[in-house]
Design a protein around this nucleic acid. Structure first.
Length: 468
RNA sequence: GGCGCCGUACCCAAGUGGUAAGGGAGAGGUCUGCAAAACCUUUAUGCACCGGUUCGAAUCCGGUCGGCGCCUCCA
C-alpha cells in the first residue's frame, strides 16, 4: 500500500518513501509533565497513533520514539519567566521529581485508555543531559554558538536556511512585538542551548557542563534524543502545529548545523482542538481532561471516535453536543459489531468478499490519513447485508488495526453482564408483561435505561445489553 | 506587521475541476402491547457573498464579509 502524507516542509501531500525499505523512524514530541494533559493535547497523540498504525498497516515496521520533558521550561522565552515545573512543585508541595513522575504516570494512564500505543522508546530529558551537552559541544566546535550573560546561544545567522519549515521571512519578523528581546541575543531569533544563570530560588534540576552548572535550553532535548535513538537522519517528526515556528524550526537549525545534513525527512503536524472560546490552552488555567469527560459519563472511545471524525489537519471545535453525537455513533457501531459476532458464531471469516470496502478504506487511509472517509467505509461495510457476517466482522477488525477501537475485544458476554438488582428488574418486567401490566413494564424499562441497560423484546424472549 | 487555516444540510464532518461520503438528530414505514434494535424510505439543483477562468467550479483566480490559529511556554 502506497502512503501519501502531507509534509509541512514541502506544504504538499507527497508519496511517502522511507529511508530504509521496511522500517520507519517516527519521532513524536511528547508532553511536558508539569500538569495534566488536556483533551487538545490528547488529540495530537491520537493523530500520532493513527499515523503510526497506518504506517504499520501499510506494511512497514515502525520505531516510535517519544520524549518526556521533565526538565523545567520557562513560562516565557527569556530567563526571567517562571519555571513551570517549579511553579507546579511549589503549588503542590512536592519535589519537581515527584511532579514529573506523577504527571508522566497520569499522561500514560490517559493514552492507555485512549488506546494510544505506547512508544517503543520513551526518553526522559533528565536522563539525557549528557547527550544534550555533547550536541551543544558539537555545535560549539563548528562555530554555531556564542556565550553571553552566562548562557550559551545558538546563532541562527550561521544556519542559512533557518526558518524554512515555517517559511519565515526573517526581515519581516517583528521579534519582540509581544515580548522584550533578551539583550544578550545577537539576533532576536537566537535561542538558548544552555542556561547557567538560574534566578529561581528552588532550582534543583542543575547539571555540570563545560559552560558551568545549569540546565539545557528547551529545544535541544528533541534533537539529542531523536538522533540517539533514530540516527542522525530519520523519516518522520510529528507534533502540534504550534511547534512549527519556534520549536521545530530551532530543532532543525541545531540538528542540521551539527550534522551537516538533512535531519528529518517528513514533518507532520496536527491542528488544534478548539473550545467555545478558541484554542484550548494549559496556560489559561482551566482546561478539559479525559478524566472530566469520563466523569461526565463518556467512554474514552467516544473521544477517540470524535477525533477520528475530523481530519487531523483541520481545527476541530469541541462541544459536549458534538461529543454526544460521537458517543451515539460509537455505541451504534459497537453494538453492530457485537451483533455481527453473534451472527458469525464460530465461523472464521475471511475478508474476501469485503474487498470493495477494504479498497475504499485503504485508499482513504493512504491519502493523508483521511479517517472520516475511512469511518465512512467502515459503516458501509458493517451495513452491507450482501456480505456474510463473519466476513464483515473480519474486515472490520482489519480496519480496526488503524482505528484502534479494539473491536476484537468487545465482548458480548461482558455486554450482558449486569448487576443482580438489574437482573431482578428484568425478571419483574417480564412478569409484568405477561400480566399485561404494561405501564409497570415501561416504567422498569425506563429505570433500566437510566442505568445504562437497554431492553430488547424479541419473539424468543427479552434480551438486554449494556450501553458501553 | 509576517505566516497559515476555515466558512458545506438542524448538528458534526468528508469532498479541492466532472456534477454533493459518512455519522448524529428528525420524519414516514416494516416489526412491536408500546418501545428498542434492525431494515427500508426520507432531509443541500446547492457548498458565506460578488465577479472571473472553463464545455463544466463547492473545488482554480480576484474581491467582499465573517471566524480561527501560529509568530512567547503550549499539541
Amino acid at each position: 500500500m502506497k502512503l501519501y502524507l502531507y509534509n509541512t516542509m514541502t506544504r504538499s501531500v507527497d508519496e511517502f518513501v522511507p529511508l530504509e525499505d521496511d522500517r520507519v523512524g517516527l519521532y513524536a514530541c511528547g508532553p511536558t509533565v508539569y500538569n495534566y494533559a488536556h483533551i487538545g493535547n490528547l488529540r495530537s497523540y491520537i493523530f500520532e497513533d493513527t499515523l503510526r498504525r497506518t504506517i504499520a498497516y501499510a506494511g512497514y515496521g515502525v520505531s516510535h520514539v517519544m520524549n518526556v520533558t521533565d526538565v523545567g521550561h520557562l513560562t516565557d522565552d527569556q530567563d526571567d519567566g517562571e519555571d513551570k515545573m517549579i511553579k507546579s512543585s511549589r503549588e503542590m508541595g512536592k519535589s519537581v521529581w515527584e511532579i514529573a513522575e506523577f504527571y508522566t504516570d497520569s499522561f500514560f494512564h490517559d493514552t492507555d485508555r485512549l488506546h494510544i500505543l505506547r512508544p517503543h522508546v520513551t526518553c526522559r530529558a533528565t536522563e539525557h543531559i549528557d547527550d544534550m551537552i555533547a550536541l551543544i559541544a558539537r555545535l560549539e566546535e563548528k562555530g554555531h554558538t556564542y556565550t553571553a550573560g552566562g548562557n550559551v546561544y545558538f546563532a541562527i545567522d550561521t544556519f542559512p536556511t533557518y526558518g524554512q519549515l515555517a517559511q519565515l521571512k526573517l526581515d519581516d519578523l517583528h521579534a519582540g512585538a509581544r515580548i522584550e528581546v533578551d539583550e544578550h541575543k545577537r539576533n532576536p531569533k537566537d535561542f538558548v542551548l544552555w542556561f547557567t544563570k538560574s534566578k529561581f530560588e528552588n532550582q534543583v534540576m542543575l547539571w555540570d557542563s563545560p559552560w558551568g552548572r545549569g540546565y539545557p535550553g528547551w529545544h535541544i532535548e528533541c534533537s539529542a534524543m531523536s538522533m540517539k535513538y533514530l540516527g542522525e537522519q530519520f523519516d518522520i517528526h510529528c507534533g502540534g502545529i504550534d511547534h512549527i515556528a519556534v520549536h521545530h524550526t530551532n530543532e532543525i537549525a541545531q540538528s542540521e548545523a551539527a550534522t551537516g545534513k538533512q535531519w528529518v525527512r517528513w514533518w507532520c503536524h496536527s491542528e488544534f482542538l478548539l473550545d467555545e472560546t478558541g484554542k484550548m490552552s494549559k496556560s489559561k488555567g482551566e482546561f478539559l481532561t479525559l478524566d472530566y469527560l469520563v466523569s461526565r459519563g463518556f467512554d474514552p472511545m467516544d473521544y477517540r471516535y470524535f477525533c477520528l471524525g475530523a481530519h487531523y489537519r483541520s481545527q476541530l471545535r469541541f462541544t459536549f453536543e458534538a461529543l454526544e453525537h460521537a458517543r451515539n455513533s460509537r455505541r451504534a457501531l459497537f453494538s453492530r459489531i457485537l451483533e455481527l459476532r453473534k451472527q458469525a458464531g464460530d465461523s472464521q471469516g475471511s475478508t474476501e468478499g469485503a474487498g470493495r470496502w477494504l479498497d475504499e478504506f485503504r485508499e482513504h487511509a493512504s491519502q493523508d490519513l483521511n479517517m472520516p472517509r475511512c469511518l465512512s467505509a467502515l459503516w458501509g461495510l458493517v451495513k452491507d447485508a450482501s456480505i456474510d457476517p463473519a466476513c464483515r466482522l473480519a474486515a472490520a477488525c482489519e480496519m480496526d488495526q488503524v482505528f484502534g477501537f479494539y473491536l476484537e475485544q468487545l465482548n458480548p458476554e461482558k455486554a450482558e453482564e449486569i448487576p443482580f438488582e438489574m437482573m431482578e428488574l428484568i425478571r419483574e418486567r417480564e412478569e409484568a408483561r405477561k400480566a399485561k401490566d404494561y405501564s409497570r413494564a415501561d416504567e422498569i424499562r425506563a429505570i433500566l435505561l437510566a442505568n445504562g441497560i437497554e431492553i430488547k423484546d424479541t419473539p424468543s424472549g427479552t434480551s438486554w445489553r449494556k450501553l458501553m
